[in-house]
Amino acid sequence: MSLATESGRDRARARNGWLLSLPALVLLIVGASGPLLIVVTYSFLKPGEYSGVIWEFSGQAWFQVLFQRDIFDGTLGWADAHLTIFWRSVRLSLLTTAITFAAGLPTAWFIAMQPPDRRAMWLFLITIPFWTNLLIRTFAIMEVIRNEGILNSALMGLGLIDRPVQILYTDTAILIGMAYVYLPLMVLPLYAAIDRFDLRLMEAGYDLYASRMRVLRRIILPIIRPGIVAGSILVFVPSLGAYVTPRLLGGGKNMMIGNFIELQFGQGRNWPLGSALSMVLLAVVMIALLVYVRVAARGDVVR
């Protein structure tokens, strides 16, 4: 009897949960998730002459992601241009992650060590740029590093250089821009981890003869590792799929995957290849997220 009502209540709870979530699910399936399945389908079709696709099955797009056939003799080879773009995307994303970590850890630490009533204000200062339009922030960086920008003007004014250094439209520019744009994504999870960190463990470390560097390396970093992993994923994932920042700071030539995908839907006129590339990007991101979930689960055990 009581068992029956229990399971009855369970069922009612599940039904209400689903019913209330239904509008959100429908909206997300129509406006976000569902179309992803169409992309999978398109990646197995043939490109149309100007745009769109011809409804014929083909593995050509997936083949083209990594390989190409020589236009003269038809021999098989690596798609060097594609590999260069992939490598640039991964390299710049990893570097962005490293730079944001190096700058973000002291910043997060600094905020966490503020008196409790002032922490919210510092966090807010980190958050404002985070919510500010990505385009505006990229534009702001553009103004700083352009040849006539304040960075070059300042360096020339100081007499350190006599001609402007070309930073804009290089990989370095993309790197500076992405580090600038994604830094808050590193600081916030690091702050959350440091905030949970028991400072008395530092006292214990010093008490047991550890130097400051060793307290940092042997005690703080291992314990806040879940925050480090979270911050790294949060920076790495959007860096890898970045579109606006490399588009504006890298110019037309220094493409990352995001720009390369766009190209296939524009001048490239190869929707299936663009679709296949999108799926590759999505797969890499999903793998990174899975790694995060696994590490985070392990972090819980340690805590």
């Binding site: 997300l28 995908i261 839907f265 663009g274 999505l282």
Partner: peptide, 23 residues
């Protein structure tokens, strides 16, 4: 339901953009 709701935070925006363009 959680995964579906948070999906836009996980999928790179460019991928969603492409998917919506096609759709």
């Amino acid at each position: 339901i959680y995964v579906m709701i948070n999906q836009p935070l996980m999928v790179p925006e460019i991928v969603t953009a492409v998917a919506l363009l096609i759709f």
